[in-house]
Amino acid sequence: MERLIVLDTETTGIDPQEGHRIIEVGAVQIENREITNTEFHKYVQPNRIVGDSVKVHGITDKFLINKPQFNQISDDLLSFIEGSTLIIHNAPFDLGFLNHELKLNGVKTKVEDLCPVIDTLELSKEQRPGTMHNLDALCRRFGIDTSARTRHGALLDAQILAQVYLAMTGGQSNLFQETQNNEPQISHPSMIKKNKSNKEKIKVVFANEEETELHLNYFKN
């Protein structure tokens, strides 16, 4: 059975080439199309201030004091995802940060060299071109409860994305097609059966003159 790991990160910014770093990693395992309690979750000391990104995730510099640095969690993270298929929303973003952190630690191998990756952003674009594809939009589309998601959080977003992925790949799309076939359904002549065997035995009773006159007078009134 294929092992699926849904993964998300929180960072100090949007571009690792500008010195931004990972501050949270969250991942959850899917087994036999069930979201399990097998999870990976770590906060990371980024060796820089969080800055304006605190408005997105609410993780403060004070909170990150004494949290482990990425090189202290990287072995555990790689062991957790090894042998799995990764499910990531907007995968280039998270992979870019993860690979940058590994490179800073002298690891030349990239995450995508270790694990195949499914990008749910691209999957959504294939399924519903022309619609919105962010995580909030997908949750609305599939009726997934996000009331606990007041801010972004790596583990919480991974748990929500796991639900989204199962909904996207659940094979139920035919039940909710946006367009329906309104063409009249015509049975093939071979499917129509006429009972001719007792045709000669059928008794036909015609209306008499009085019944015919009553019938005609009824429609005159």
Rank of each mutant, 00 (worst) to 15 (best):
V164N: 01
L114E: 02
I202H: 10
D113C: 05
I192H: 08
P184E: 06
N174S: 15
R149T: 03
N195C: 10
G130T: 06
L121D: 00
D119M: 10
K201V: 02
E126G: 07
K196V: 11
N182Y: 07
L114Q: 14
Q172D: 11
S173P: 01
Y165R: 03
Q185P: 03
G171S: 11
A154Q: 02
A162E: 03
L155V: 09
E122D: 06
A148Y: 03
Q180G: 13
D113T: 09
K201I: 02
N134I: 00
Q180L: 09
L138P: 00
L175H: 15
L114N: 02
S173W: 08
A148K: 13
E178M: 13
K203Y: 05
I186H: 05
P184W: 11
K196A: 09
L166H: 11
G171Q: 06
L156K: 11
T131G: 00
E200M: 12
S173M: 12
K203A: 15
L175W: 13
L138D: 00
I160F: 12
V205L: 11
Y165L: 08
V164R: 02
E126D: 07
C115A: 02
F206P: 01
E200W: 05
I160S: 09
S124V: 01
N174W: 12
T179M: 14
A158P: 01
N182L: 10
Q185E: 13
H133G: 00
N195K: 14
G153P: 01
K194T: 06
K194M: 07
R151H: 10
L138S: 01
F176K: 15
S124W: 00
E178G: 08
M168R: 02
K201R: 11
P129I: 10
R140H: 10
L138M: 14
T131N: 04
I160L: 14
S124N: 04
K125R: 15
P184M: 12
T131D: 03
C115Y: 01
C115L: 01
D145A: 08
R141H: 15
H188P: 07
T179F: 09
N195I: 14
M132W: 02
E112N: 10
Q172I: 09
R151W: 06
I160G: 03
N182A: 11
A207Y: 07
S190F: 14
P184Q: 06
K125C: 02
P189K: 12
A154V: 03
N134G: 07
V117S: 10
H152I: 05
E122F: 05
N181D: 15
N174D: 15
D119I: 05
R149W: 05
E200C: 07
A167M: 14
H152G: 11
A207L: 14
A162C: 07
S197F: 11
N198L: 15
R128Q: 07
I144K: 12
Q180A: 06
